[in-house]
Nucleic acid binder design. Structure first.
Lengths: 113, 113
DNA sequence: GAGACATACAACCGTATGGTTGTATCGAGA
DNA sequence: TCTCGATACAACCATACGGTTGTATGTCTC
């Protein structure tokens, strides 16, 4: 079996909603089922269920059966995948600085006296 | 003037599109105007312009006039704001681990012999 | 000032998204 | 096995989104 490649569209799309971000935060404690989560928000159970499903497809949460409930648990590794992409941009940025220094010339590193 | 509070919906929403993420990456070098950017993608100039506008409203890029063009430059600080939110989740996670250890009891830190 | 290049913006179209209600499935307990 | 609590899923609706084309605004260059 293959590990699915990260789907950044889905990941960032899932994070682009305040309700879903709040679910992610709450589900770090991995204590609540879908119905319990739903009580925190001014919308129907079905709507929250959809949000959880979107987070699940994005790899940001998982559900584990406990008794007759399914407890939602955030998948830290998923969050890290997203974070890593942002880190990459930062690295490209530093690379740019390096290239600029080269273009300008080494001598700029130590100012002329 | 006030600094606008970060709008995570817009930020993550802007990042949830491969074309826009590519623009962010390209614009780190801050060399291309909108028209030049548009040449990289299989869509109209106007479509790319819209993508840039979305990134701009999300605070992820800025445009600076250079001659008759407007050069797109990615705003690293915007990316950092997004990254920081993901870091916060990580911190909450660590906090949870701390609380769990407390619940279980200190003695678990050093296993009985 | 005229012409050309670069950007901006409005109107429109198909599809995706976020919400609703209603119905079906599944697991636990009497 | 019957029932209840929890989850799942389908159908539907309004609005947002990603793309198009067409027109308007700026700004260099001659």
């Amino acid at each position: 079996m293959q590990v699915a490649p990260p789907d950044f569209d889905r990941m960032f799309g899932a994070l682009a909603d305040a309700t879903r971000r709040d679910i992610v935060r709450r589900a770090i404690d991995a204590e609540e089922g879908v119905a319990e989560l739903a009580e925190h928000y001014p919308m129907s159970f079905a709507a929250v269920q959809k949000h959880v499903a979107i987070l699940e497809r994005a790899g940001l949460v998982t559900k584990v059966r406990i008794g007759r409930r399914k407890v939602v648990r955030t998948n830290l590794e998923g969050l890290r995948v997203a974070r890593r992409l942002l880190d990459q941009y930062e690295e490209v940025w530093r690379g740019r600085l390096g290239r600029m220094a080269q273009l300008v010339g080494e001598d700029r590193k130590e100012p002329p006296r």
